[in-house]
Design a protein around this nucleic acid. Sequence first.
DNA 1: GCCGTTTTCGGCCCGACTGTTTTCAGTCG
Length: 561
Amino acid sequence: MDATNRLVAGVLAEISDLLEIHGENPFKVRAYARAAEVVGHLGRSVAGMNEDELEALPGIGKAIAEKVREIAETGTCREQARLREATPQGLPALLNLQGVGPKTVRRLWKELGVVGLDDLEAAARAHRIRALRGFREKKEHEILRAVGVARRGTDRMSLTEAEHLADVMLAAIPGEAWVAGSLRRGRSTIGDIDIVTLAPVRETAHSLARVADEVIDAGEKKISIRISGRRADVRFAAPKDLGAMLLYLTGSKAFNIRLREVARIPGMRLNEYGLTDHKTGELRQFRTEDEVFAALGMSPVPPELREDRGEVDLALEGNIPPLVDVQEIRGDLHVHSEWSDGTMSLEEIAAAGEERGYEYMLVSDHSASLGIAHGLDAPRLARQQVAIEQVNRTSGCTLLAGVEVDILADGKLSLPDESLQNCDLVIASVHSAFGQDEDVMTRRVITAIEKRDVDIIGHPTGRLIGRRPPVAIDMERVIRAAAENETALEINASPGRLDLDDIYIKQAQERGVRLAIGTDAHAAPELAYLRHGVALARRGWCGPGDILNTRSLADLLERRG
DNA sequence: GCCGTTTTCGGCCCGACTGTTTTCAGTCG
């Protein structure tokens, strides 16, 4: 995300939390929270927008537009300062505790003098919480447990972890079940697991309790558990109303709210059971999501687009753009072999490509430079190209002779031009000096983009999910340069990277930049990551024409002239 | 604070579950 947008979104979200603690109008609280979301997912920087442009954004009116300008210019605003003055610093963090909301935080503060996590834990241990009216032993235990969970950290899950936990749950549930929530929407990180099932309630509760750390709550309609430290929700449906339930549990929350607003216009109420006519009270049920969309007069919205970023209005006009499908992918555009730090031989890569029905695989081993073991220098790259030719004589899947060349700290590449000219396709990536400041890093990457022989910029922001933040880089400038030079940007499909992020993919797609999906596989099982890359491309509104991997081998090679 | 196919005031998505309740507030998704 753009640094200014991140800053502004953070301040607006904090104002929302503080207003909530002070018992302000809930709709005002929501207005700030929504504005924070909108700014956080904006493709362009609010730093360059005037108040008129800001007010044109959904959920941003005169008052918030002024504050956005103030925050963008000064890093804060008077409203934030005023609220911070009136509120102990540690209080907003308490809102994140499971089972603790604004009303509770306020009472703990006013009646017990609690101003942070440590205070709260001490108060609970001293049994001072159960002394409050309306609170008893159970609430005190709940709070202590929530403090423990918070101290262990509550980072979002990687896709790998989330898919594993979902599989464990699907295996435990005695009946048909579907993954919903952010996992179904293809998000890069997952907060909790959501599942819809047709299985019977009682048996499901029993078998889930066996795989769970803890059952958070269990009723007739839903079960919430903690599994391997993560939260999971299961909702029960019947075949005749499965559509509305899947739609509801897939979300996102913002999308659901928009959809329910759409339903209200003709006097309907949308919930997870169907559409109710306000006047007659009649409930219409739906077996599939598409039937719900049809009843609302919309074309179906693919799960990956359900974020309230303009897709609802397009669906109402019947103008949802076609998105790239995994079936349309003709090859993997980033694979490592045993020639550098991978484990697959060239023959194994070709065989794996054939097995997947691909036309081609881009062999893109690391170039020799600091930090990368067994990188290829010019002579070894030349020898690899001979070996690739040999494999291609008998392989049904063509190996493209490529390389993932390092972009050095000064923007130069770590292989000579002649070496790069002999490649079918060249990926250029940053693997060192991650700490450069934004302008230096941006110019460094743009220097590589402008090189004639560079076809793709690998993992453009360099983030490692949960381990390393993205480098400081002005993606708007990078995307403009990529458009001007017809250089593609990579969608790195490895669950540890998922780089680019969807908001930049969309921005690149809008400017006509091509995107290349690569698994960055270092071993055969990692070739399956491709589907994550496709999901990410879909989240960035990419159609088949935006994706390099949908091109035929001949078309792809034509790029090099 | 935002917003307009019941427009410039008066609404604002909707329901499940828990705890401490004797009818509901608070929290969550």
